[in-house]
Structure formats: C-alpha cells, structure tokens
Amino acid sequence: MRAWKVVLLLNLALVLGVSWGYLWWGRQARTLQRDLAAARVAAATTGEREYHVTGVVRAGLEDLGLLVVTHGEIPGYMPAMTMGFRTASPKIVESVKVGDAVRFTLRGTPPNLAITAIEKTAP
C-alpha cells in the first residue's frame, strides 16, 4: 500500500477513535446527569417527608394558623429564608413568641408541609 494511504487511514482511525471516545464520555455524563435529576425529583416529590429545622420566630398569625420563621437551609428542599409555614395545631402558634429561637419538625408531602412539633432552643 502507498504510504500516503497508510497515513490517511491512520489519521482517520485517530479522528474516529477520539470522537467515539468523546461521544461515549458525553453520553455517559448525560446519562449520569439524567439519573441524578430523576433521583432528586423522586426524593423531593414522592412520599411523605420530614425535616428538622432550626430558626427564629418572626410572627405568629393565629387566625391563619401560620408561623413566620427565619430558618436555615432545609437540605434538599429550601434555602435559608424567612417563610410562613402552616401549623398542624393552633397550640403550636400559641406556644412560642416573636424572637424565640426554635427547633421544629416539618412534615408532609412537599409542597404541602406543616409544622407538627416545635420547641424552644434558648430561653
């Protein structure tokens, strides 16, 4: 075989090899990403979830059964923010005052979560 043909074939093989490797790697990465996203969605939406959160009480709206809390990050659900949550019973709103540092339990199927228990962490 002529030398230039050998070189051409070699380069062709090189280009094919590199692009196959690149595509395979890209597909692998995409598959992984899709799996990860699916797992995240599944983790966030299916079934009842329970989060334990710390925060500080900003307002209690007894008529609405809402407690407004400045809280830290809720991993896998919500970043740190000031947010109003529904409460499972009116007693929960009554049991705390504005400015109380608290630890509370959020339970439910996201986004339908409610505070089911609360305790003060500092006097």
Binding site: V56, V57, R58, A59, G60, V68, T70, T82, K97, V98, G99, D100
Partner: peptide, 12 residues
C-alpha cells in the same frame, strides 16, 4: 433584638 422589636407590627 428580635424579641425587643415585638410582634406588632411584624418585621420580616
């Protein structure tokens, strides 16, 4: 400080 600001009106 948050307690001293009080509940009414609420400050968020």
């Amino acid at each position: 400080a948050i307690r001293r600001l009080g509940a009414d009106p609420p400050l968020f």
